[in-house]
Design a protein around this nucleic acid. Structure first.
Length: 471
RNA sequence: GGUGGUAUAGCCAAGUGGUAAGGCAGUGGUCUGCAAAACCGUGAUCGCCGGUUCGACUCCGGUUACCACCUCCA
């Protein structure tokens, strides 16, 4: 039975989708004004793994995500880079696609840009005005937060305290316009010329911070969805405001389960653009070629817990992933080389069955990837034990390999095969060493092994002959 | 100040009212020409104080430290 932790109720709840077998899921995407950093990637990675697991579990998942391609940040950065807002957004949207593709994150079923749903946004805001939950002031439109009786539940904040906090930071102009400091903008008037603005019943302007998500969900998934995801920092105000807008608009429960991921920390501090302690995926992958290791690091920690990012944790992830890959390659190689009886091994099949069940139990518990990983390591040990046996059964060997591939693919690791190859010189050294070993010239063979090691190639001797691995 | 979270072996990190998964490192062994890899074995009483209980790391109260949200932020 699948259970998920719902931020709305702060408890783990049994998961029941609105439509059996079908899941409607929305995850907040990036504002495309620069390269994504590891924190953004963590969110995308975590929800990709959740989506992959739900799919593995047999659900049909409709996954919608947005690109925010408008707003002050986009305008500012466009001016800095000498591009139009649309060009800038296009540039970083493509960068997002490239970075996430390297991390093996499956693109959402539907991906929409805020600028593509402008008509729907205006209609949505109009409806909120007609319902009396919004008001216009000099080209701005605000939502009457206090009128929505469940306002703030998701973020577990007290309304009056929120009001005090809000009042303290409002600028005088904004304070004058709002009926209540906690009201939030649905539409912001834009009076400058030459910057992104759309025509509306309230004059030229742009949508407020939160409306695009409400609109896209309504447009692509309908008034009620099963899962809504994003970073925990979005619980307030972003998701809080989404609930108010959407439930006022539809009169229905907006989201069944709110899922929020934790942060990537550096030196026990949140990685963020404002703190300036961020590492972009773009730069990290350009200097560190193994994107799979990065993905593995981002996925193996439970999605609600913080990830400590450092060179050490990255190395640790590399070591763990290597152990998994080695087991896979070891058995795969033996199966490929030897002629083996195509039959099954009942005892091993039984263990494999248990492992698969354990994996599902782990992941059914609010997507507990930490425990899922422990089960994967059990499978690794089983494979290593099996690969040592004299009488391998081909079918069972394939079942083990398929299982390992399937389970790791849920973690975003799609290919356990070795992609690297040796260059001509390295191959010659390796061949020469094989020859030396044949002649039992161990002095020469050890020297050649050292030479290869100096080039970053680790050589091991196995029953099947030499085996190599890039360090 | 309010709210949410975290504190478990050298490090990363699961977990349950009944004497603590897994990975890394270390260490002993098997295997190996040597090595590596792999396999087998090996270590903690769970921030602190108090309470409930036959029994708590797991429940309750308090306390300390750290993080996050309350402003755009995954």
């Amino acid at each position: 039975m699948l259970k998920v932790y719902n931020t709305y109720t702060l408890t783990k709840e049994t998961f029941n989708p609105i439509t059996p077998g079908h899941i409607k899921m929305y995850v907040c995407g990036p504002t495309v004004y620069n390269y994504i950093h590891l924190g953004n990637a963590r969110s995308a990675s975590a929800f990709d793994t959740i989506r992959r697991y739900l799919t593995y579990r047999g659900y049909q998942v409709d996954y919608v995500s947005n690109f925010t391609d408008l707003g002050d940040k986009v305008i500012q950065q466009a001016q800095k880079e000498g591009l139009t807002e649309a060009q800038l957004a296009q540039k970083y949207e493509m960068a997002f696609d490239q970075d996430t593709a390297k991390l093996n994150i499956i693109p959402a079923t539907v991906r929409s840009k805020a600028t593509e749903v402008m008509t729907e946004i205006i209609d949505f805001v109009t409806d909120l005005l007609e319902k009396g939950y919004a008001y216009e002031v000099e080209g701005d439109v605000y939502f009457r937060a206090r009128k929505f009786s469940n306002y703030g539940i998701l973020s577990h904040q007290n309304l009056n305290e929120m009001e005090e906090n809000a009042a303290g930071r409002l600028n005088a102009q904004e304070a004058l316009r709002k009926e209540d400091p906690i009201d939030f903008a649905l539409w912001k008037g834009e009076h400058r010329s030459g910057v992104q603005a759309w025509s509306s019943p309230w004059g030229f302007g742009r949508p407020g911070w939160h409306i695009e998500c409400s609109v896209m969900i309504d447009k692509y998934l309908g008034p009620a969805i099963d899962l809504h995801g994003g970073g925990i920092d979005l619980a307030f105000p972003h998701h809080t405001n989404e609930i108010a807008q959407s439930e006022t608009h539809s009169g229905e429960e907006f989201v069944r389960y709110w899922l929020h991921n934790g942060f990537v920390n550096v030196n026990q501090e949140k990685m963020s653009k404002s703190l300036g302690n961020f590492t972009t995926v773009h730069e990290l992958l350009s200097q560190y070629s193994d994107a799979q290791t990065l993905r593995f690091l981002l996925t193996k920690t439970h999605y609600r817990r913080p990830i400590n990012y450092s060179d050490t944790t990255l190395e640790q992830a590399q070591i763990e992933l290597d152990r998994i890959r080695r087991a896979y390659r070891r058995l795969a190689k033996r199966v490929a080389v030897e002629s083996i009886k195509d039959s099954t091994d009942a005892a091993v099949e039984e263990q494999l069955k248990l492992i698969k069940a354990d994996f599902m139990d782990a992941m059914d518990d609010d997507f507990n990837t930490e425990n899922g990983l422990a089960v994967i390591f059990e499978l690794v040990t089983l494979i290593n034990q099996y690969a040592d046996q004299n009488s391998l059964q081909l079918a069972t060997a394939h079942h083990l390999l398929d299982a390992l591939q399937t389970l790791t693919s849920i973690f975003g690791i799609d290919n356990l095969e070795l992609k690297e190859s040796l260059n001509e010189e390295e191959q010659q050294l390796l061949d020469a060493r094989a020859q030396a070993r044949l002649m039992k010239d161990f002095t020469a063979s050890d020297r050649l092994r050292d030479e290869l090691l100096a080039k970053g190639v680790v050589v091991r001797d196995t029953v099947q002959g030499q085996e190599w691995e890039r360090k």
